[in-house]
């Protein structure tokens, strides 16, 4: 089942590539004067990408093997306080995979009694502070942009997590659920 969807996704991507390529060929044969600029631009971005892509994939592969889902749930479920907060940040940033992989893990964490604020930090870290992803951001947008966005995202993730926790506790108390 899982393998099936993976193959389907790969086939879809290749078809999409075929369509994109056809459009490019048609456009460039109608406007031959644009060929040079399109080629040089594409080539420039391709070179920048190919220099880092293998390294990024190696990092993702390493995290996939060394930081397992069970490990994340096990450690995050039982730590609290400032340690729990840092762990949530690190465990959100290290494993790889799209955000929807993190939802069931977050649900498991809540069931295990982890603080809501830590679960939210974990989700936000998973969504936007992935280490391999930051490498690509560094390459294409520069160290200043990457560092500034990273710091702001962490600050706002903490603010968000604590306010959501307060809001949910407040609304639970109001409804008489404790």
């Amino acid at each position: 089942m899982k393998k099936d969807t993976a193959v389907k996704g790969a086939i879809r991507d290749v078809i999409l590539l075929g369509i994109t390529l056809s459009i490019a060929i048609i456009l460039l044969s109608i406007f031959p004067d644009r060929r040079d600029i399109v080629f040089t631009t594409s080539w420039e971005f391709f070179v920048e990408m190919i220099w880092i892509l293998p390294a990024v994939m190696i990092l993702m592969g390493l995290f996939m093997v060394w930081v397992s889902k069970d490990m994340v749930v096990k450690y995050l479920g039982r730590t609290s306080g400032i340690k729990g907060f840092f762990l949530a940040l690190v465990f959100g940033a290290l494993p790889t995979g799209p955000l929807y992989v993190a939802f069931p893990m977050a649900a498991a964490l809540i069931k295990k009694g982890a603080r809501i604020s830590n679960v939210i930090i974990f989700l936000n870290a998973w969504a936007c502070i992935k280490l391999p992803q930051e490498m690509v951001e560094l390459q294409f947008l520069g160290p200043k942009f990457m560092a500034l966005r990273l710091i702001l995202t962490i600050i706002f993730a903490v603010v968000m997590a604590t306010s959501i926790e307060r809001l949910i506790e407040w609304s639970n108390n109001k409804n008489g659920v404790s």
Partner: peptide
């Protein structure tokens, strides 16, 4: 290899975007 087609798509799109 899984991400490669996507990389090529984006690179073509970028070329067309800045070219046209």
């Amino acid at each position: 290899f899984r991400i490669l087609p996507m990389v090529f798509i984006v690179i073509i799109v970028i070329g067309l975007l800045l070219g046209f």
